[in-house]
Computed example of a mutant assay.
Amino acid sequence: MSAPALVAIDHDDYHAEHVGRTSDGRQFFLTTPFEPGLGQEGNEFVALFLFDAAGNFLEAKIDEFGPRASIDPERRKAVYEQRLRELGAVTFTRIEVAPFEVEKFGTTFGLIARPGDDEDDSWWVELHPGNYMAFTEPWDSGEYDT
């Protein structure tokens, strides 16, 4: 078993609410990762991940908001909505993208592939930070665990 070349993510009304394609064919994933912490101490982020039409990672636009207990939720919502507007006309639909990782603010972000715990276990692709979406075979199912 090995890491997947591409992972499908179906558009839904939960963590994958804002996945799809831009008018020029790029794929995107707009999400709100977080660093887990005790109580309200973990950092909150808005992340826009961009991919080419074939699913190769192009760029990450990530905004940091600090610990959950001290963020301004209206400011985070405004930044989230601004990132969505920056994409222009979009279609919310299934995307198929390659695992990737990028460092920013001293944190690793991305859809990170990792082998299973045992030799015969399947690989996983996890959305970090926060690991709030986890994908496993079949890679084209578009479904994830939370």
Rank of each mutant, 00 (worst) to 15 (best):
M1N: 14
M1E: 15
S2D: 12
P4K: 02
L6M: 10
L6R: 15
V7M: 11
A8F: 10
I9D: 07
D10L: 13
H11A: 10
D12H: 08
D13Q: 14
A16P: 07
E17M: 01
H18Y: 12
V19M: 11
D24W: 01
D24L: 10
P33V: 09
F34K: 03
G39M: 04
G39V: 05
E41I: 08
G42R: 04
N43R: 08
E44M: 15
F45D: 08
A47G: 10
L48G: 02
F49Q: 01
F51Y: 11
D52C: 00
A54W: 08
F57R: 10
F57W: 10
F57I: 01
E59K: 12
A60F: 00
G66W: 06
P67E: 13
P67W: 02
I71S: 03
I71R: 01
A78G: 14
L84N: 08
E86T: 07
L87S: 03
G88N: 11
A89M: 05
V90Q: 10
V90P: 09
R94C: 08
I95P: 09
E96L: 02
E96K: 02
V97P: 00
V97E: 08
P99M: 06
E103V: 07
K104G: 01
F105A: 02
T108W: 03
I112Q: 00
A113F: 06
A113T: 03
G116M: 09
D117T: 15
D120N: 12
D121A: 13
D121W: 08
W124H: 15
E126H: 03
Y132C: 01
P138I: 14
P138D: 05
W139L: 09
D140Y: 08
G142F: 05
E143H: 06
T146S: 12
